[in-house]
Structure formats: structure tokens, C-alpha cells
Design a protein around this nucleic acid. Structure first.
Lengths: 179, 179
DNA sequence: CGCTCGTGTATCTGGCAGATATATGCTCAA
DNA sequence: TTGAGCATATATCTGCCAGATACACGAGCG
């Protein structure tokens, strides 16, 4: 078989927040689950059409350009079923930086240290971003608050681990090839 | 544009370890960089053909079934160039478990805690795996040793962070919905 | 009036995963 | 000894998905 299509569940889930156009759906996804999920228009629009055919979403009925999609009762049911199924253990994601390090012996001197330094900068930006997000979510008064907080904490945990690893890796490289 | 093709660099890099058939290439990839990189045959064979056309790899010349591929001088040069280019900051990886948690309010009670428990088991297996790997690599006497060790440490760092997050998340869920 | 920018829809290309089909030679056990 | 399994090996197909691009429309602003 092929990869299970999961775009549909992101769509159905976001539509529980209210009716939205395809464009707004994507913006919402970027703004909320964007740090661990992404969607592209090229995937979104065909998925919406298919969900409509299956009766999981429908349009308000205002024919026209910006007629928002809403989730149906069948859609909510489908979402609940998916929530109860175990997420496939994700096959390892491709990490290009690690691949470069693995073959690092063939790199010119200093190249890897440069990659690590830039990687660290990105992580520090991400950490600041998550810290701000954590404050926002913690201040929310929403039944979703705890769930959202858990996803933000995940980002913080990974970024922290990444920073510690980055320092460790830099130290190991310095040992290998002293400056 | 489209996503940059990175399969080629995994191939070129692995071929620095010596000539290999397509099949063995994939096995080597699984056994060494498998925890942060994956390749499928469906991608590997076309890539090898293309690399051959570009003169970055060649076959030994033993016409026949298991004629191994080897990297050419141009291939090594291409690898070095790639090593010096900054890896694209990876766009966020899709994390289905986090998506389920984000929409967790719509799940039946206990469902998320079950997902987290299974997730924790998988992480603990992974941690044991990495710990063994770390011992093996540390005992290696190879010029690649430090580089390989850094990639293993990355796995350990992420798994550790994952386990701490998992405990944190479970506690937050228990607060939300006491057992 | 023309410009930019946000909103909105649609489509194409190409990377890639996973499945499947097929073939060969080896080893081990009935 | 035969035959069942298994590792080795190559090839191809389907379908998910990202990223790019192209096109509209309207609002604000100069």
C-alpha cells in the first residue's frame, strides 16, 4: 500500500474551530500546529473536494468565491475514530545536517562547525518563539488549553535537547580537529 | 521550484565506504544512518542511473547481475560541494501524535493517555538501541568515529527529551481529567 | 488612477515512500 | 535430495505531499 492520507484529519480538526475557506484553513494550520504540521494548497484543495464527496464537510451554501467549509456530523465522527487509532510510529525523518556530519570526514575543515553554529542560531530563535507561545497558551481560557500547551512543551523539549546536543557536538569536533 | 533531491548525496556518501550494489546500499543506509535517513528502492535505482549519466558513479564493468557501483572523482567532488552548502532548515516534520493531542478534546477519555503510554514504550526501546550503538561506535577505531558518534548522540538527546516530555504531558492530562 | 498587499482558488512538477513483481542462489531440514 | 525458506538483487507503479506558479478580486493608499 501507500502512505495513509493524513491531510484530511488536520482539515477536519481545524474545522472544529469553525467554518473556514481553504485559504484561511491553511493560515490557521500555520498559526497553530505549524510547528509540527504543514499543509500546502496543492494538497488542501483536492482534499476538501474529496471530503465533500464523502460527506465529511460541506459548504455553507452561499455560492460564490469565499464560501467557507464546515464540518458535518459524519466528519466529527471520522475525526473521533482517527483520534482513537494509534498514530503510526513515524519512520525516521530525513535530517540533512546529520547526514552531512556523518560524512563529515570528507568536508573541508571548519565547514561542519559553521553548520553547527547556524543550526544553533536557528534553535535559539525557535526557543524564543516557543517561550512566547507558551505564555500565550498558558493565559488562554479555552477547553483546548491543556492540549495546546502539551504540543508547545514538545517544541520546547526538542529545542532544548537540540541545543545541548549542538554544544556537545561542537566540543567533540573541537577535540577531533583543534582550532 | 521543487524540493531539492538529496537521495543522491546519501548514495554518494555511502559509496565512499566502498563499491556496492543498489541492494547493499540500501542495507548499509538502514544500518548506519537509518535512524535519521531512509531510502527506498523506488528512489535508489533511478537515482543511481541518473548519477551514472552524470558521471558521478560507475559500475565496475563486470557485466552481470551484481555489478557494484563505485563513486568517481567527480562524485567525490560533488559530495564535497554539498557538504559545504548549508542544509535547508527543515520545514516542520509532520507529527501525527501531536496532531491527535492538539485535537484531543474531541477524543474519548483515556485515548490520549494510551497513545502516550505506547509512545513511551517505543522511546524506551529506542533509547536502549542508541545506548548499545553508542558503545559500539565509541569502540570503533575509524577516522569516521567522532562523526558517527555525534549522530548517535543526537538520537540519544532526542529520545531523552521525548521521554521527559512524555512524562510531563501525561501529568498534564491527569490534571485535566483525573483518573 | 495605478500599486501593492491580503485573500482566495486552482494546477503542475517532481521528490519520495511503500508496495509489489520477479528472479537467483544459498542453506537447512525433512 | 528436494524443496522451502531466505537473503540478494533489480525494476516499476501508485499515490501522498511540498513547493512553485498562475490567476483572480477587492481594499487601502499614494
Amino acid at each position: 500500500m501507500t502512505r495513509p492520507a493524513r491531510t484530511r484529519y488536520a482539515v477536519l480538526g481545524m474545522l472544529t474551530h469553525g467554518p473556514m475557506t481553504g485559504y484561511r484553513l491553511r493560515e490557521e494550520i500555520r498559526g497553530t500546529v505549524g510547528h509540527f504540521w504543514r499543509e500546502s494548497f496543492g494538497q488542501l484543495y483536492p482534499t476538501l473536494s474529496q471530503l465533500e464527496q464523502e460527506g465529511l464537510v460541506r459548504r455553507g451554501g452561499d455560492a460564490g468565491r469565499s464560501d467557507p467549509w464546515e464540518i458535518t456530523a459524519a466528519g466529527r465522527q471520522s475525526l473521533r475514530v482517527w483520534l482513537a487509532t494509534e498514530a503510526e510510529s513515524p519512520s525516521p525523518e530525513r535530517n540533512e545536517l546529520l547526514l552531512q556530519i556523518f560524512f563529515g570526514r570528507h568536508a573541508d575543515p571548519g565547514v561542519l562547525r559553521g553548520h553547527l553554529a547556524r543550526h544553533r542560531e536557528r534553535l535559539e530563535e525557535a526557543r524564543a518563539h516557543y517561550a512566547g507561545l507558551e505564555g500565550l497558551v498558558a493565559a488562554e481560557d479555552s477547553p483546548d488549553r491543556t492540549y495546546w500547551l502539551i504540543t508547545v512543551r514538545h517544541g520546547l523539549a526538542l529545542v532544548g535537547a537540540g541545543l545541548r546536543w549542538n554544544a556537545d557536538a561542537t566540543a567533540l569536533l573541537d577535540e577531533e580537529d583543534p582550532v
